[in-house]
Amino acid sequence: MSAKTRKMILYLILGIITVLWLIPILFIFVMSVTSSDSIASVGYSLFPKEITLEAYTYLIKNPAQILDSYKISIIVTLIGTVAGLMITTGLAYAMSRKDFLASKTLNRYVTFALLFHGGLIPTYIVVTQWLHLGNTLWVLILTMLVSPWNVFLMRSFISGIPMELLEAAFIDGATEFQTYFKIVLPLAKAGLASVGLLIMFGYWNDWYQGMLYIDDMKLTPLPLLLYKIISNIQYVMQNSQYMNTANNFPTIGARMATCVISIAPMLVAFPFFQKYLAKGLTLGSVKG
C-alpha cells in the first residue's frame, strides 16, 4: 500500500467519524422543521417528506415561558461568568504566589475541597435549610461560582508568568493591586479566556441546580425547561400560553425547536473561541 492510498483511507475513516458525530445534532435541527405528518409516515428522518416552520411560529407566537427561561439563563450566565472568573482568578493568584507564605495553606484548603465532597444530600441541606437559598435566583449563581478544579486550572496559567516581572514592578513602586490588575491579568489573558469559557458553558448548560432547588417556573433556566417539557408533555399542554393551540400542538417539532434555540447561541459562538477552549483543556489535564 502506497503512502498515498494510506492517506486516502485515513481521510475516509476520519470523514465517516466526523459525519457520525454530526448526525445526532443534525437530527435535532431537522426534526425541528419536520411536519407531524411526515413523522407519522416515515418516522424520524434526516430526509423528511415535508418541511415546516410551524414549530418556530408557535414558539414566536407564545414566547412567555421561553423568554422567561432565556432571560434567566442569560442573567445567570452573565453574572456567574463575570463574578466566577474574578473570584477564581483572585484565589488562584494568591495561591500561585510562592513568596506569599499563606499560599501553601490556601493550596491545601482548595485541594481538600477538590478531593473530598460532602455529597449531594448534605449540600442540599446546607443550601435549603441553612442558607435558605431554595427557589431564589441566587442559588443558580452561587452554588457554581467557584469550582476548585477551575481554580487549579487558573493557577496553572498564572504560574506561567515569570516572577521576575512582578519583582520588577514592585521595585518600581507598584502596589499589590496595581501589579495584579496591570501586569498579572493582561498576561493571563489566555487563561481568563479558557476558564471563563468553561464557567460560561457550565452556567448555560446547567439544569442540575435548577432541578434541585427551583420549583418556580419564573426562575426555570432554559435547559431545565427542556427537561420539564420532555418529562411531561402534559405540562406544555397545561401551560396556559399553549392552551389556545393545544389541539394541534406540534409536540415533537416544538421540543426540538426549543432544543435548537437553546444550543444555537453556543454553536454560533463556538468557532470563535474554540482555540481557547482546546488550550484550557490541555493545560488542565496536564496539571490540575
Partner: peptide, 8 residues
C-alpha cells in the same frame, strides 16, 4: 492577596 482570595 488575602483580599483577592477572600471571596473564593
Amino acid at each position: 492577596l488575602l483580599l483577592l482570595a477572600l471571596p473564593g
